[in-house]
Design a protein around this nucleic acid. Structure first.
Length: 217
DNA sequence: CCAGACGTTGTT
DNA sequence: GTCTGG
DNA sequence: CCAGACGTTGTT
DNA sequence: GTCTGG
């Protein structure tokens, strides 16, 4: 709330801290409501209003910026359902012949990352669920060594405009695809984070250098 | 018209 | 709900 | 994203 | 291989 000058949390108890937010789990999402910014707990993995079951959300965790305006599932959301997912960092798995290594990625300068995202509300009988998907883009040069995609990130200057319903989506998307993301830093972590049930500071501890089988005699 | 999909990543 | 394919 | 299950019949 | 759950 301090960083974003958000006015309040939507739900009474704010989210508990998590070092391992997996798809389907709840994360902090910023939305504009009238003139104020409000934090909402939302499930990661978009469940569109028309979905017949919640399980649709397991597939829609990311949205490619290149095709955002043409995909039927997303194009209507770009107009009025923009939001910002908030976290200190995120994990990306780098592949090599030796296997997959998770990296933890944060900003050198900012205390939090702002992920450009889209949300929707799904209602089925009694229970309503709000959920979101994170927009992805080709990687900034720095991150190309880790992965061939990255989340579309917003600077603190950009995020208010991204949330504003008055802003034209075409312009916002053009800027989003360009934004520099040159302040990102990263380091490898252990595969403790691979198991969704694992949580705590151990998720972001730098990995020991594992000797490869090749180096053992 | 109705039926069926609606998504990304990564691998081959 | 809305789009695509048949 | 990764991990883990993937099934029925019949019994307690 | 593919789907579900976290």
């Amino acid at each position: 709330m301090e960083v974003f000058e958000a006015s309040h949390w939507d739900a009474a108890p704010p989210l508990a801290p998590s070092y391992n937010v997996a798809p389907s789990q709840v994360a902090a999402v910023l939305r504009q409501e009238n003139e104020s910014q409000v934090l909402h707990p939302m499930h990661w993995g978009l469940i569109p209003r028309w979905a017949k079951s919640r399980s649709v959300g397991y597939k829609m965790i990311n949205a490619r910026i290149e095709t955002l305006t043409t995909k039927p599932a997303y194009r209507s959301l770009v107009q009025r359902k923009r939001c910002v997912a908030v976290a200190q960092g995120y994990y990306e798995w780098q592949k090599s012949p030796a296997g997959k290594t998770p990296f933890f990625i944060t900003s050198e300068r900012a205390p939090l990352l702002c992920f450009a995202a889209l949300w929707d509300r799904w209602q089925h009988g009694e229970n309503a669920v709000s959920s979101f998907t994170i927009i992805t883009r080709p990687p900034a040069p720095k991150l190309a060594q880790i992965h061939n995609r990255m989340p579309a990130l917003l600077t603190p200057q950009q995020h208010k405009r991204w949330l504003s319903p008055a802003e034209p989506p075409e312009l916002l998307l053009a800027e989003l695809a360009q934004s520099a993301s040159d302040d990102l830093q990263f380091y490898p972590v252990s595969n403790f984070v691979n198991r969704p049930a694992n949580n705590g500071p151990r998720c972001v501890e730098p990995a020991h250098q594992e000797p490869s089988l090749f180096d053992l005699h």
